[in-house]
Amino acid sequence: MSGRSLLAGLLVGVGVAAFVDEVVFHQLLHWHHFYDRSTTDAGLVSDGLLHAGGWTATVVGLFLFADLQRRHATVPLRVWAGGLLGAGGFQLYDGLVQHKLLRLHQVRYGVDLLPYDLAWNAPGAVAVLVGLLLLRRARGRGAGGSAGGGSPVGGATATGRLPS
């Protein structure tokens, strides 16, 4: 179930990052705008996808996680790795592709953008790096523990522990 753990983490990570972006920066601080006049159509498409995807990812990720938990099949390290990769990846995508490439909207208006952009993207990059490190460590551990136990999804890993 290690693949499933990573996936659950990824989805929840993306969802949490999207949620924070929406609630904190759009709704509470009003730094971000739904649309500004420089926004390209590609930017709108991308933002619409992320907005819809954030919800979906959170819900699906949480249900996957709950399913892992009740099967006692969670690999915590992989969930964390996935969460960091998901959240950091979202942050970087939002900060680099959406804000800069697609010019969707900026972090904040009427200010010198550089520090804001750094503060936006640096944590994302750090999260991705830490996520990758955790993933590597999990892989190292997984090789010692259950070799190849992940692939038959409903199978060996989960059920092997059930009778005990």
Partner: peptide, 21 residues
């Protein structure tokens, strides 16, 4: 079905943004 839902949801959201713009 999750992917289908995502496509429909994104379709609505992208449309809303284009209408806004």
């Amino acid at each position: 079905r999750v992917v289908l839902l995502l496509v429909v949801a994104a379709g609505h959201d992208v449309l809303a943004r284009l209408v806004y713009a």
